[in-house]
Amino acid sequence: MLKVNGIDVFYGDVQVLWDVSFHVGEGEVVALIGANGAGKSTTLRTISGLLRPRKGTVEFLGERLDQIPPYRIIELGLAHVPEARRLFPEMTVEENLEMGALKPAAKARRAESLERVYARFPRLKERRRQLAGTLSGGEQQMLAIGRGLMSLPRMILFDEPSLGLAPLLVEEVFNVVNDIRRDGVTVLIVEQNVRQTLAVADRAYVLETGRIVREGTGSELLDDEEVRKAYLGV
């Protein structure tokens, strides 16, 4: 479904990604794990068109994402739940959700999607008229995920969804990821929370200083000696 082929990405003159390649099949949950500064977010920003690779390609359902403007990528059915939520703090919860359904196909079913999101996250319904900036961290994360779902995506990119959340909320986030997969939506998730991510992921890639150094199924990597030592501290 998504194919990243040998991308090199730079910030100015500084190379951040070296020849990164991976793929995500339809219906899979794939994780990209690695330490701070390994290039995980850079990879996602390249997929969503905010950065352009100097070499290599990004394909989604056969379309070259690296050649179209970022605002058109969502029309292809690829939604992005960005790092640190990136909500519109001075808009209400409901307005934030409505901003998720801008493409015509999603707009036509906006009321229905809104009900679905509210059914999944009752807290958001209670706070629909509240400014997004006044929500708690966990509620903001739910809102960011809800906004992503409003576009009726075929695939969702999650950038560090558990960042800064209490353990109970982290668990809730991973439950949501599981629900989304059950609805037939493909997921690419970037996380530092390695143990829980590998538990829900079908497959995972390990990024280290801008290169993919390992890949395997979630359980393979959980058992991998190097991964255990580097990321799980055992």
Partner: peptide, 9 residues
Amino acid sequence: DAAESLGID
């Protein structure tokens, strides 16, 4: 960036 990724030109 968020506006752009939600489909706003």
